[in-house]
């Protein structure tokens, strides 16, 4: 039996999302990659499910919100995340970083699931607040002795690509059944965030 074209496209997108999420059943911030440089920087944000789902959720939520949020969030997030990273590198403490990261997944997942559309400034503020936690955790782990700029650049690119994946998944809302798929993705993100929150609170 062959699926209709749009159904197959939806299946492909879902499969791509599953592949993106599958290899990463671990904390993003638990270990530092040996060495450094571009490859380590690129793999770091992809290597942790808590970070991956939150980044994808940024794109998903941007797509649900529509313009201007669909591009404001991916532009603002790396900037604020890097600021958080700067704080982490300088040793400025931020309490409850892992809890904040878990809550980011939970909240943004719920936003997508419930298709909540706060004013763009409020959405940007929320996403930026979460970005500080993500950046701080990663900044504190930037390995010494690596090529820091290549590592940082690759890290930012990987994060941006995760946003792009979220936006692409979010754009499936235009297709029949796509809206439910996006809401379901938001639900999965929220559940993963909830699981990490429970782990962080232990």
């Amino acid at each position: 039996m062959s699926l209709p074209l749009r159904g197959r496209q939806l299946l492909l997108v879902a499969g791509a999302a599953a592949l993106a999420l599958a290899p990463a059943a671990a904390w993003a911030h638990a270990d530092a990659h040996p060495g450094g440089g571009f490859v380590a920087g690129f793999l770091h944000p992809i290597g942790g499910l808590d970070h991956v789902v939150a980044m994808v959720a940024v794109g998903l939520w941007g797509a649900v919100l529509g313009p201007p949020a669909i591009w404001v969030l991916p532009v603002a997030f790396p900037l604020v995340m890097a600021f958080g990273g700067l704080l982490g590198l300088l040793g400025v403490p931020i309490p409850g970083v892992e809890i904040g990261i878990a809550i980011s997944g939970l909240v943004m997942g719920l936003m997508v699931l419930c298709e909540l559309r706060p004013p763009p400034w409020l959405a940007a503020l929320m996403v930026c607040a979460f970005a500080v936690f993500h950046g701080h955790a990663h900044g504190a782990e930037l390995p010494a002795g690596s090529n820091a700029l290549l590592y940082s650049l690759a890290f930012v690119i990987a994060t941006g690509l995760l946003h792009l994946l979220g936006i692409a998944l979010g754009e499936t809302r235009r297709w029949p059944g796509g809206r439910r798929f996006v809401q379901g993705s938001g639900g999965v993100v929220a559940l993963v965030g909830l699981w990490f929150l429970e782990q962080a609170l232990r």
Partner: peptide
């Protein structure tokens, strides 16, 4: 136009992380 702004954002983000790294080491 959006891509250009995203590119600028990535450059700043990488530079900020690098700046933190330089100040730390």
């Amino acid at each position: 136009a959006i891509g250009l702004r995203v590119g600028g954002s990535w450059i700043t983000a990488a530079a900020l992380l690098m700046l933190g790294w330089l100040l730390r080491h």
